[in-house]
Amino acid sequence: MNIRLNLVATTSLVALLSVSAASAQTMEELIEGAKAEGMLTTIALPHDWCGYGDIIASFKAKYPFLTVNELNPDAGSADELEAIRANKDNKGPQAPDVIDIGLSFGPQSKAEGLVQPYKVSVWDEIPDAVKDADGYYYGAYYGVMSFAVNTDLVDNVPTEWEDLLKPEYAGQVALAGDPRASNQAILGVLSAGMARGAAAGTASGEAGLQFFKELNAAGNFVPVIAKAGTLAQGTTPIMVMWDYNALAARDTLAGNPPVEVTVPTKGTLAGVYVQAISAYAPHPNAAKLWMEHIFSDEGQNGYVKGYCHTARFNTMVAQGKVPQDLLDALPPAEPYEKAYFPTVEEQDANKNAVVSGWDSVVGANVQ
């Protein structure tokens, strides 16, 4: 897939019919149905992640008849799928309507029957490489893996994965998630493995686990889920996370402490997040309105404002739909030109290696 770049990139009768029916609804019908439902339940959408705070606010302004019920903002992709499983017979407020998950979790959600198909009105503008042909999940945005560094505490900012093993970084390096459940953390391990020359997939997972085993043995790894607060407090002076999260943390802290964001030139990795509607959504019409909103010009520009590159980025730029101030605020293009977009199969193989091997190989209980 290449969004800012130029990326090359057994269904039942009931499912086929639902695709057709879902796509055939008009906006007026969706709005009327959503009014009757009165609520949308999201999960795992921190307000400082990819501009979601403003995106949710604009959705509320557009559809004031809907209450947005936000579940567990810090959940990982695996947690989102578990929330659907655990609440499939529950139509109450703990049942998510929509999910935002790493690309490798898309096929799993479809195979388990956890999501339902819906093709948004701009379906043709979403690159084929990041969407399920039947509409079960579809990519909204991507970023690249980076290091966010508290320069009050770190004199020499690391620029490559191998730098993190240096003794000067003792007790300073953390992942922004649990690598047994978080897509962001799992792909952080993939990036580390690729930096050591491993091919994306099982090999990158195994090489990445070995890297983190060494990092942990050296005393450099901190088994804490890193975020802006832990960066500022000094608990995790070096955070491994998506560039848009790192840049948002920098902005949130506003120089107290100063934060520098770097993208490693070895193992430069891009990660796509996909959207889907729960097969058991209590509010299916509201869920579809949400999908239409986040893929609209307004929603896509909300992601860009949050430093993300989006599914419709190239098309919207060509049409003059992305404000120049948003384009000017994006990081330099060079890291994105080098970034590798792993396939669904490569991500899935890496995920299996990391999730199954983290405890036995690394042995650090991240929480």
Score class of each variant (00 low, 15 high):
I31W: 01
L269H: 13
L66A: 13
D348S: 14
D134Q: 15
G299W: 10
L269C: 01
L327S: 06
G299F: 07
T262N: 11
A78I: 04
L7Q: 08
Q233V: 02
A140C: 05
L7T: 07
D48V: 09
V120D: 04
F212G: 02
Q210D: 13
A15G: 07
D124Q: 15
A15F: 07
V259F: 01
L215K: 01
A75T: 04
S77H: 11
T236D: 03
G188Y: 04
V261R: 01
V157I: 11
S20W: 13
A333H: 10
A198P: 00
P342C: 12
S18W: 04
R250C: 03
G143Q: 05
Y52H: 15
S23D: 01
D297G: 02
A78E: 07
A286N: 01
T252P: 00
L209H: 08
V322G: 03
G306E: 09
S58D: 14
G201T: 05
A170Y: 04
K227R: 14
Q94H: 12
G320Y: 07
A203H: 05
T26N: 10
L7V: 02
G177Y: 05
L269T: 12
A218I: 06
N216F: 05
P158C: 14
I294V: 15
A44L: 10
A24S: 15
P179M: 03
P96E: 14
I31P: 00
V120N: 04
H309R: 15
T230P: 03
P167G: 09
E162A: 14
A9H: 12
K321F: 00
T310A: 11
A22S: 14
K305W: 01
K166N: 09
F65D: 02
E298S: 10
V274P: 10
P282E: 05
G171A: 04
S104G: 14
A75V: 04
D132G: 08
I55P: 08
G188I: 11
D251F: 02
E32I: 10
A61Y: 01
P223M: 10
P96M: 08
A228H: 08
T159A: 12
V19T: 15
G171Y: 02
A148P: 03
S360H: 06
V366S: 05
L253E: 05
V189F: 10
L175H: 10
S360R: 13
E70S: 11
S146D: 09
L231R: 06
G229M: 08
M194R: 13
D48H: 13
D89H: 13
V272M: 09
A78T: 12
V189W: 12
A111L: 05
D155R: 13
G208K: 08
T265Y: 02
A207N: 01
P335Q: 05
